[in-house]
Amino acid sequence: MTVSPSTATGTALSARDIHKAFGRRVVLAGVDLTVRSGQTVGVVGENGAGKTTLLRILSGDLRPDQGTVTVDGTLSHCPQHPVLNNALTPFQHLRLFQEAFRLPHLDRAHELIDRLAFADHLHVPVKVLSGGTRQKLNLVLALMHDPDVVLLDEPYQGFDWQTYLAFWDLAAARRAAGGTTVVISHLAHDIDRLDAVIQLGHEATVMTEGAGR
């Protein structure tokens, strides 16, 4: 796989002829996609269609057997299962990521925490947090540096309804600011919130434009 700056005007993320197999099991076969700057795009498909595999390849976490990925700007990946240290508190995670991202302050992180309503849990070990609160922290860590492109693998698992709505408010704000979001979703009522849908299947990849508002 090659990852390089985008040369197409307005293209934030593109993939060409992506193939991936695990042993004899073919997961992705010739996937192509183009995501424009400022779009919120959903990735849908049946279990085993390769949604998580595709996002891992787009993020650079997994190497494809064949194909190229092109990214314009900074990229962040929020995996389906939070990758957190159970012994650390959420605030300690923020400080670690602040150093990693070389951020001068945590203002954006605290804004996200307030939007997702878990400020009361900042100073307790992650091991005692609920699954939904862990997922909130996972999302904040992916968004706190305002990446140009963010890849989200079912980011609202365990969220209550109000937090689910808060997530889509954040996605809408990213779109308004020109940020690009690619999100794996299993929920049919998400479709109206998306600008385009990437349908993964065993035969082909179909991208439908204009699905959102």
Score class of each variant (00 low, 15 high):
residue 184 I to A: 02
residue 139 L to T: 01
residue 77 H to N: 04
residue 119 A to R: 12
residue 124 V to W: 06
residue 147 P to G: 10
residue 189 H to F: 05
residue 126 V to Y: 03
residue 180 T to M: 07
residue 135 Q to W: 04
residue 166 A to H: 01
residue 102 R to Q: 14
residue 165 L to H: 11
residue 191 I to S: 13
residue 157 Q to S: 15
residue 131 G to H: 07
residue 186 H to S: 04
residue 189 H to E: 09
residue 130 S to L: 05
residue 119 A to C: 04
residue 144 M to T: 06
residue 94 L to N: 08
residue 150 V to E: 00
residue 83 V to P: 01
residue 60 G to T: 15
residue 91 F to L: 13
residue 73 G to V: 15
residue 86 N to W: 05
residue 130 S to Y: 08
residue 106 L to G: 05
residue 134 R to C: 12
residue 197 V to R: 02
residue 106 L to Y: 08
residue 86 N to Y: 06
residue 140 V to I: 15
residue 172 A to G: 04
residue 103 L to A: 08
residue 189 H to Q: 06
residue 72 D to T: 13
residue 116 L to F: 10
residue 113 I to P: 06
residue 96 L to G: 08
residue 182 V to Q: 00
residue 191 I to K: 12
residue 113 I to C: 02
residue 56 R to G: 08
residue 124 V to L: 06
residue 174 R to V: 05
residue 130 S to W: 08
residue 84 L to Y: 09
residue 55 L to M: 09
residue 113 I to W: 01
residue 143 L to C: 03
residue 181 T to W: 06
residue 197 V to W: 04
residue 105 H to C: 06
residue 177 A to L: 12
residue 88 L to V: 10
residue 154 E to M: 14
residue 71 V to P: 09
residue 63 R to K: 14
residue 94 L to R: 08
residue 198 I to H: 10
residue 186 H to E: 01
residue 179 G to T: 07
residue 81 H to E: 14
residue 129 L to Q: 05
residue 140 V to W: 02
residue 135 Q to H: 11
residue 139 L to P: 00
residue 119 A to S: 09
residue 108 R to V: 13
residue 170 L to T: 00
residue 139 L to H: 00
residue 191 I to Y: 02
residue 131 G to E: 09
residue 161 W to H: 05
residue 65 D to H: 07
residue 70 T to R: 13
residue 195 D to S: 09
residue 95 R to M: 14
residue 88 L to Q: 15
residue 75 L to Q: 10
residue 79 P to W: 01
residue 120 D to F: 02
residue 108 R to K: 13
residue 195 D to P: 15
residue 161 W to L: 11
residue 123 H to R: 13
residue 192 D to V: 09
residue 143 L to D: 00
residue 152 L to K: 03
residue 151 L to T: 06
residue 92 Q to S: 01
residue 64 P to D: 07
residue 142 A to E: 09
residue 94 L to V: 06
residue 188 A to V: 10
residue 98 Q to P: 01
residue 129 L to I: 02
residue 147 P to F: 13
residue 136 K to M: 06
residue 181 T to P: 04
residue 122 L to S: 04
residue 170 L to N: 00
residue 61 D to R: 07
residue 183 V to W: 03
residue 115 R to C: 08
residue 70 T to M: 10
